[in-house]
Design a protein around this nucleic acid. Structure first.
Lengths: 218, 218
DNA sequence: AAAAATAGGGACAACCCTGTCCCTATTTTG
DNA sequence: CAAAATAGGGACAGGGTTGTCCCTATTTTT
């Protein structure tokens, strides 16, 4: 009485192949945020990945070719992983995520069937929605390594995520822009009232003041 | 009227230097979980890091030596980053987190003053508490790369974190162990009632059944 | 066959986060 | 000076998560 049609649901089935545990978890979270109705599987090594590929059918597979057991300096080894995975999931679309990206590797991966090539370096929270959309529109998406000018981050254990987020944006306020304008931008961005954004900022500020520590830019 | 004593609070001040955004975020979360009363700063590149090191005093600095602008194949470049950071924060303890660890690099880092050397490969969620304790007890902690036998992971967008967690543990149940025993272990581990753990598992199961998808091991 | 384990629920309080609205001083800007 | 912006709050509803307790069938074990 086994159910034959296991892929009847409307969910997107995703597989993440990545040996760094924290990165794999982060990618899983990113994927779930980008694809609200999704089921995401994680594989820490190629053995598990092959098992899952044989027993499930995926719509999207994300591969980090830098797996243990393969020589990280050997391009052939890296491509082997990608090629095997693609052969086992011919109907899925495939992304490669890597810490050491090169233009040549992307070109080679593209020939193997990869449509997304993303440097870990250039993969920010929330960026996957853009990547997915770009793939849908243009057929591929490439984000090579990029020395970013990200502002310093500040995390206080007493703040809620919203407060953290609002505070992060406020700390990037360019001179000449009033806070009020930021509140409006934030309200627009998060689809909340500007007054609410203001409230969050004030509460965050109050918390930091109480503990005697708020960053320079207020 | 500037406040001179900025480090009066009881909080632990942490700096994470890591160029991969998702990994940096993950490390920040891990640190906040491991050090409940902590203030964590993140730096995506060495420039920001140096700025922060000059303007703040840290208790713990976590460094990924594989920063852009440095030749990843050059050991000298990697050590340079570590050395400069240590010189600018002589009172802090220093961890190195890297995707490409070697025994020799650890030995060299140790001479520079590093007390924690962790392969990203071998850094699981929650592991930092153990690392911190080991450092406190033995003075150092090393976790070199390790081809782990992690079980496959399964994430469904409709499950709460607790349900996700309980389900993850339940899926690893060895044969011969009853679910009830797992409930008791979980209750012990999360400091909740075994009955609550059972409840979470059942609810998770119900949700998966409703969408027509539950992993093989029930 | 009796006992234990399991499936599949309902009800409920407590808590936190979110989001909205409203208020008054004080400071800065035009 | 007058107007706008900012600091620093209070109150409150709604929602989700957590955690506890309780219930009845069905299945498995002993």
């Amino acid at each position: 009485m086994r159910a034959m049609a296991e892929q009847t649901s409307k969910h997107t089935h995703v597989l993440i192949i990545e040996d760094q545990h924290l990165m794999r978890l982060a990618l899983i979270h990113e994927l779930q945020a980008a694809l609200p109705a999704s089921i995401v599987h994680g594989a820490a090594n190629i053995t598990i990945a092959l098992d899952l590929l044989e027993s499930h059918q995926f719509d999207l597979v994300v591969i980090d070719p830098g797996l243990p057991g393969y020589d990280p300096k050997s391009q052939d080894d890296r491509f082997d992983v990608v090629q095997v995975v693609i052969e086992l999931s011919p109907d899925a679309i495939h992304f490669v995520v890597t810490g050491s990206d090169t233009d040549e590797e992307w070109e080679h991966c593209q020939k193997l069937g990869v449509v997304g090539y993303l440097a870990k370096n250039n993969l920010r929270p929330g960026a996957l929605v853009d990547v997915l959309q770009e793939v849908a529109e243009r057929g591929y998406s490439v984000r090579l390594s990029n020395e970013t000018t990200a502002p310093p981050e500040f995390y206080h254990s007493g703040l809620t995520p919203r407060e953290q987020e609002i505070l992060g944006w406020m700390r990037q306020r360019p001179s000449g822009i009033s806070r009020k304008e930021i509140y409006e931008q934030l309200g627009d961005r998060f689809d909340i009232d500007a007054a609410s954004a203001e409230k969050y900022y004030k509460r965050a500020r109050a918390k930091l003041l109480k503990t005697g520590l708020l960053p320079k830019g207020l």
